[in-house]
Write a protein that binds this DNA or RNA. Structure first.
Lengths: 202, 202
DNA sequence: TAAGATAGTAAGTAATTACTATCTTGTGAG
DNA sequence: CTCACAAGATAGTAATTACTTACTATCTTA
């Protein structure tokens, strides 16, 4: 067992902070996570946090950066090298759900951040994440049409909205059940309906 | 113009309070709505609120009751008298979206309430609302199968999850755009894909 | 129209929040 | 070994929160 030194270098401390927030968001309402709770979860005094972040908002920004980076990386990895666009979308979907199941706080933080009235840096981060996500989807959908895997008359924009909404539905389901296991189980079943909706005639 | 009397009877004041919260939630993060903001929005001092509600939590409970009642009524009205189950589902979907477009804060309050770690009365209210919603969906889906409108092999549970998720996707879209107009426009397009996913073979 | 009931005001409270100032300690480069 | 400085502890601050209290205005009705 690695013995953690009391004093961490600044960049490591920042990384640990982000992890602490992600972990807290798994069981707490993200909007109610206080700097005291974050510090407590990483065995640090509250004031020490502000040695590494100028404000709480900066912490949230760092968290959303972490999320955007990891999520897109996972989703890209799942889709790369897959020849069939529909299969790539399926891989992307399941990878996304798996990511969310590992970090249940993530979609709630994203949704929570979008609700903020003020245009925070973290909110801007989320917007950019979703924009990039949709670019990927759009590319796959278009090439799926060209390949004849997807219906030629498919409304691409609506299909992208539905893709993301489908995941939101699973998240909501897991919030209701208070258990993330349902998500993994239901994901393939729900995607089956989605793919039938966008696929070429049966 | 009707001149509003300064003193309202208790039940009317409670109703006005609920309306104030719904209106505030349309433009503010529901989790950040303070009792001072509620009172201010209805031209009342903050303390006076507590003459009518024992706690802020009780206000949220009243709000969720309002939401559950109205939403289910709207959705029921849209489905009643429609012979085809699939058409009823479509009516339900569009009525729901219309309701949300009129009260954009509603889905955000619901989602926000589900996130709460503590099992509040308002949260319980939301659970019950969604349960009742799903019962209605389940009934329609099953009768759709019997009628042959829906695919016989359809996974009913997954279809219900996707139905609700589809609306969540539209909500997310409207949060991104900061505009509720997109929802009304996109709703029929998104439902078209959904209904293709659950319908009998083409 | 007097009097009790109801509704609202103004000015508090204690608790919690993000953030800061000051002092202390751990640690790695020389 | 040592010592400068990065990292953390301690103990604050002002602002904001839900909620309360003591009092006043306004209705209702006998």
């Amino acid at each position: 067992m690695k013995h953690r030194p009391r004093n961490l270098p600044a960049d490591e401390r920042r990384a640990v902070t982000v992890e602490a927030v992600i972990e807290l968001a798994a069981t707490q309402n993200p909007g109610e996570i206080t700097t005291a709770a974050i510090a407590g979860h990483m065995n640090l005094t509250q004031g020490a946090l502000f040695r590494h972040f100028p404000s709480k908002e900066a912490i949230w920004q760092a968290v959303m950066e972490w999320v955007a980076e990891r999520l897109l990386a996972r989703v890209d990895r799942a889709a790369e090298g897959v020849d069939s666009p529909l299969a790539a979308m399926r891989g992307m979907f399941l990878a996304h759900v798996e990511f969310v199941a590992e970090h249940p706080g993530v979609p709630r933080m994203i949704f929570g951040e979008l609700q903020r009235a003020e245009p925070t840096a973290a909110k801007q981060m989320v917007r950019k994440l979703i924009q990039r996500y949709r670019e990927r989807l759009h590319r796959l959908i278009e090439s799926g049409k060209v390949r004849g895997e997807l219906s030629a008359e498919l409304d691409s924009e609506a299909a992208a909205i539905l893709f993301i909404g489908t995941i939101q539905g699973l998240v909501m389901q897991s919030l209701l059940a208070g258990d993330v296991a349902h998500m993994r189980r239901d994901a393939p079943r729900v995607f089956a309906i989605y793919s039938r909706g966008i696929g070429r005639a049966l």
